[in-house]
């Protein structure tokens, strides 16, 4: 059962990802990425990480990707016109790179012991539920949390400064 689910969503994720790089229109690419994100969210649920799964949808799909789509619409680009290709060689470099990267990753993973996924719990306090995330975030991981908030602040200021028109 779980394997079936995994294969379905993994196929969806990989398919969307391949579509992402295959498409010339950025809007299709963005929508493909949303597909990948949704598939990953489903996979997170199978890993008993409900909260992260929900956040994946709310933050990634609901906010970040909307921003992307928004910008794509704002710039209203048409097809990615074929131009004079400046770095044709990169295209041929990418394939061996990808092969090597994949090979290395799989080589690393070959030793992974296939331990069992702990059984999920309906408890509100199970790992992956909201309570555990919140508790850890505001105790052990408080400093990263605060630093992240500062990062967000910097990003807000930076984005405003960058996107503001000179005359505005």
């Amino acid at each position: 059962m779980e394997r079936v689910l995994f294969i379905i969503f993994a196929a969806a994720a990989v398919g969307s990802a391949l579509n992402l790089i295959a498409q010339r229109n950025p809007m299709y690419s963005a929508l493909s990425l949303i597909g990948t994100l949704a598939s990953l969210s489903a996979l997170y649920v199978t890993l008993h990480a409900q909260f992260v799964a929900a956040m994946q949808i709310i933050v990634y799909a609901g906010a970040i990707m909307v921003l992307f789509v928004f910008v794509i619409m704002l710039l209203n680009l048409q097809e990615d016109q074929p131009r004079i290709e400046k770095q044709q060689w990169l295209r041929y470099l990418a394939v061996p790179f990808a092969a090597a990267l994949m090979a290395e990753a799989l080589y690393v993973f070959r030793n992974v012991k296939d331990i069992r996924l702990p059984a999920g719990s309906d408890s509100d306090r199970a790992v992956g539920a909201t309570w555990s995330i919140g508790t850890s975030l505001f105790t052990d991981y408080l400093l990263p949390f605060e630093v992240t908030s500062v990062l967000i602040l910097m990003a807000i200021v930076g984005a405003i400064v960058l996107a503001r028109r000179e005359d505005g």
């Binding site: 929508l31 949303i34 409900q50 909260f51 929900a54 956040m55 949808i57 709310i58 799909a61 609901g62 906010a63 909307v66 789509v69 928004f70 619409m73 309906d122 509100d124 539920a129 909201t130």
Partner: peptide
């Protein structure tokens, strides 16, 4: 009944924008 039901709701609500945008 989902123990993050409200988040589920919010997530779907945030996805509903895509229909309009597209």
């Amino acid at each position: 009944r989902i123990n993050v039901g409200l988040l589920y709701l919010l997530g779907l609500a945030s996805l509903s924008v895509y229909g309009i945008v597209l």
